[in-house]
Amino acid sequence: MKLTVNGTSHDIDVEDDMPLLWVLRDELGIKGVKYGCGVAQCGACTVHIDGVAVRSCQTFAGDVDGEVTTIEGLGTPETLHAVQEAWIAHQVAQCGYCQSGQIMQAASLLSDIPNPSDADIDEAMSGNLCRCGTYTRIRAAVKTAATKLQEV
């Protein structure tokens, strides 16, 4: 099977029904995507397939049809994505465990709705749980990122 992840093509030998999460973590060594619940309810494993946020714990490798982007491919250390910059500016992360999924979900939201309302943000982010409860900072960071992306 061939998968393109963060712009790099990989030939992998896995069963079609292996969850993408485990392909990324165990086969490719990409550790930014996290295991949270395993049933697509917490959002810790969120990645993009062709820019659309999906839960990698419930997406089978054989069903992937498009380029996969993880938190490692969203930006670079030299050029962070606007959402990553906003997360830092608003000091969103506390324990940090959910943050890669939160950031990936927020980036997908902003590609669909460039100027989201509070209700848009709440709805899009509702499937991403934060044990630390930083939801107000998450909303503020999404708004900051939206503003920055509109300036570009």
Rank of each mutant, 00 (worst) to 15 (best):
V142R: 10
K143S: 08
S100V: 03
M125L: 14
A40E: 15
N128F: 08
C37V: 02
V5D: 06
L24W: 06
I88V: 15
C45N: 12
A93T: 11
G127T: 12
V152M: 12
G43F: 07
T59K: 15
M1R: 09
R25H: 03
N6Q: 09
G127N: 11
N115W: 02
G75R: 05
I30P: 02
T70E: 04
M104A: 04
Y97H: 10
C45G: 07
R137I: 07
R131S: 09
I49L: 07
V47S: 01
I88Q: 02
F60G: 03
S108G: 05
L74A: 04
D17A: 11
Q99E: 10
I71K: 08
Q41E: 15
R139V: 12
S111F: 02
N115P: 01
V54E: 09
V47L: 00
C95F: 12
V83F: 06
S108V: 04
T8I: 14
P114D: 05
T147H: 11
Q102G: 02
H10A: 01
T46S: 11
T59P: 13
Q105R: 13
V5I: 09
V47W: 03
E27S: 10
G62D: 04
D16W: 06
Q41T: 13
K143V: 01
S100R: 10
D17S: 13
A146E: 02
T144C: 07
G101N: 09
A107Q: 04
I121E: 00
T144M: 00
S56D: 03
C42T: 08
A140R: 15
C130A: 07
T69H: 03
Q58N: 13
V54T: 07
T59Y: 02
R55F: 07
M18K: 13
A40K: 14
S9G: 06
L109G: 03
L24A: 02
E85Q: 15
A93Q: 09
D50I: 02
A53Q: 14
A145G: 01
I49H: 10
G36K: 07
D11F: 12
I113D: 08
G32C: 01
D118M: 03
I88W: 00
G51V: 08
R131M: 06
A141E: 15
Q150V: 06
H90L: 12
E123I: 04
A140T: 10
P116Q: 03
D118F: 00
E27V: 14
E67I: 03
L110R: 01
E78G: 14
Q94D: 07
Q150W: 01
H90M: 14
Q150A: 15
K34R: 15
Q94N: 10
Y35W: 14
W22Q: 00
C132V: 03
I30H: 01
G96V: 11
V64N: 12
V64P: 13
A40F: 10
L129K: 11
I121F: 01
P114A: 08
V5Y: 05
I71E: 12
P114H: 06
R131F: 08
T59A: 08
G66Y: 04
I121P: 05
K148M: 15
G32E: 00
G75N: 03
